[in-house]
Write a protein that binds this DNA or RNA. Structure first.
Length: 468
RNA sequence: CGGGCUGUAGCGCAGUUUGGUUAGCGCGCUGCGUUCGGGACGCAGAGGUCCCCGGUUCAAAUCCGGGCAGCCCGACCA
């Protein structure tokens, strides 16, 4: 493929490349207040696809959507000591409203454990009310000193699940189910990102949790990104908000709660996990536009052929757009490449005369195909692209994951990817030393790379990396 | 909060050292024409509180003083 270079090359300046992609693919803009983000239609379409896929999986796991308020009484946060301590530096607090000083300041939610806890306490009386499985799609605010579009903004969109269970065992099992069946499944099978799964070290755990499960993705610059978290909150919030139930023997006991979330950060992760020097590369299962049918000329026979092709593809369930734009062909092709559309079908007078169309894959390669074959062939082509995308990402991850046996080796290896080493070699002290060198413990795994039940398991391996 | 840097058209920048007509350039934008199978070209246009306030001067984007804003680098977060 001969083409124009329109972005900073990844190898020249990765952060600049990222900014270029976000701007040129028309994903987002900076908002007027520092740290805020305007998500543009194409960026939002990607988010809507993420939402839809995650939402489906959440519902399969039995949780239902609800909505809780943006404003939270400041006193709620204070009820859980670690929680308030963890969040206070990044809280936005409203002290003045309705023309007067508020008697009790109101916090703009940084997360909703507290309000939801308050209502769980009200709604749960009996073991028959359990488990209570809630989810909400919302915006949250965590004031950021150093924002980056999608990756770290003062306001972001996410999904936060909150559940209450009768026992620690049930809560742990549910958090694990979400971790594996919602997040890992979505990340690997839809986003095409081969995540490392595990639990957070005590130091990296969510404020107020007794255990945090995480999926860590590897970006193309060798830095890790936390792509989802699922927390076991023990009875910490149950005690703080008096979430109790009567068990079968009539005894009043504390619930065990969980919370779990994934945010618009995933859009950033998607960009950095697959993108190349020509722009975004979207996995077909996620792409808002899977196939763009490009009219080489804006002429009736060509455009009509494009429309016919588009409807035949829509009939087999593909997301298709027709481009009959007035801009030059090269310009338009470059645009679609920037936007990461997996397959481009080009239709021009010459093709029509030959009875074919040209099919170009975003990940390389082009072919001529008879137009009436497209509906039969493209679904399979898209699946091939999907699996090859995951394969390539997996190869990259494996090539940059190194087994090490000392802190120094691990720090060295973390300059370009993940380093694995025995957790017993690290400990609290080692973790601090890693952090001093801008390397963090991303997760703890079993030796076979699966997610442990808790940090108390023996023989745990820790995965360290530089991270976003 | 400590260190480095920058504010000039929608975006990216030059001009500031050494004050001097009408403040430029690239991209983008508008119109017309020629083009059209990988970011086309020509011509004609539109678009500016030169971050703000004050000072010096015949004259300030440029010099001086004071403010404000933003960016990058060091400690926490999805």
């Amino acid at each position: 493929m001969a083409h124009q270079r329109v972005l900073t090359a990844q190898n020249d300046d990765f952060p600049q490349w990222y900014q270029d992609v976000v701007a040129k693919a028309e994903l987002a803009d900076n908002g007027p207040v520092r740290g805020t983000m305007v998500i543009r239609p194409y960026g939002y379409a990607i988010w809507e696809r993420i939402q839809s896929e995650i939402d489906q999986r959440i519902k399969v796991a039995g949780a239902r959507n609800a909505y809780f308020p943006l404003f939270i009484p400041q006193s709620y946060l204070a009820r859980e000591a670690q929680h308030v301590e963890g969040f206070s530096p990044e809280l936005a607090v409203v002290t003045y409203a309705g023309g007067e000083e508020l008697r009790e300041p109101v916090v703009v939610r940084p997360t909703s454990e507290t309000v939801i806890g308050e209502f769980m306490a009200k709604w749960i009386q009996s073991y028959r009310d359990l488990p209570l499985l809630l989810n909400q799609w919302a915006n949250v605010v965590r004031w950021e000193l150093r924002p980056r579009l999608f990756l770290r903004s003062s306001e972001f969109l996410w999904q936060e699940g909150h559940t209450a269970h009768a026992s620690a065992h049930d809560a742990a099992a549910y958090a694990r189910r979400i971790h594996l069946e919602v997040y890992r499944d979505f990340l690997v099978n839809v986003l095409g990102v081969p995540v490392l799964e595990g639990i957070k070290s005590p130091r990296e755990r969510f404020a107020g949790a007794i255990n945090s499960l995480t999926c860590e993705g590897m970006m193309r610059d060798g830095k890790a990104l936390q792509m989802s978290t699922s927390h076991e909150l023990g009875d910490n919030f149950a005690r703080a908000f008096d979430i109790r139930f009567q068990d079968e023997s009539g005894e009043s006991v504390w619930c065990h709660t969980t919370s779990w979330g994934a945010s618009t950060r995933l859009v950033g992760g998607l960009i950095m996990a697959h993108g190349d020097d020509d722009g975004l590369v979207l996995p077909p299962r996620l792409a808002p536009v899977q196939v763009v049918v490009v009219a080489v000329r804006d002429e009736a026979p060509v455009v009509e052929a494009c429309e016919r092709i588009a409807s035949s593809l829509r009939e087999v369930g593909l997301r298709v757009e027709v481009d009959r734009g007035r801009a030059s062909l090269g310009r338009r092709i470059t645009e679609w490449e920037l936007k990461g559309v997996p397959v481009r079908v080009e239709v021009g007078p010459r093709d029509l005369a030959d009875g074919v169309v040209t099919v170009a894959r975003r990940d390389g390669g082009r072919d001529t195909v008879a137009p009436d074959q497209l509906a039969a062939q493209l679904p399979a082509v898209l699946e091939t692209i999907q699996s090859e995308l995951l394969e390539r990402a997996t190869e990259r991850r494996d090539a940059t994951t190194v087994e090490t046996s000392s802190l120094d080796e691990a720090v060295e290896a973390a300059q370009s990817g993940f380093a694995r080493l025995p957790w017993s070699l690290v400990g609290e002290d080692g973790e601090r030393r890693l952090n001093e060198q801008a390397v963090s413990v991303r997760c703890l795994q079993r030796p076979d790379a699966t997610t442990p039940e808790s940090a108390d398991e023996t023989d745990l391996v820790c995965v360290v990396a530089r991270a976003y």
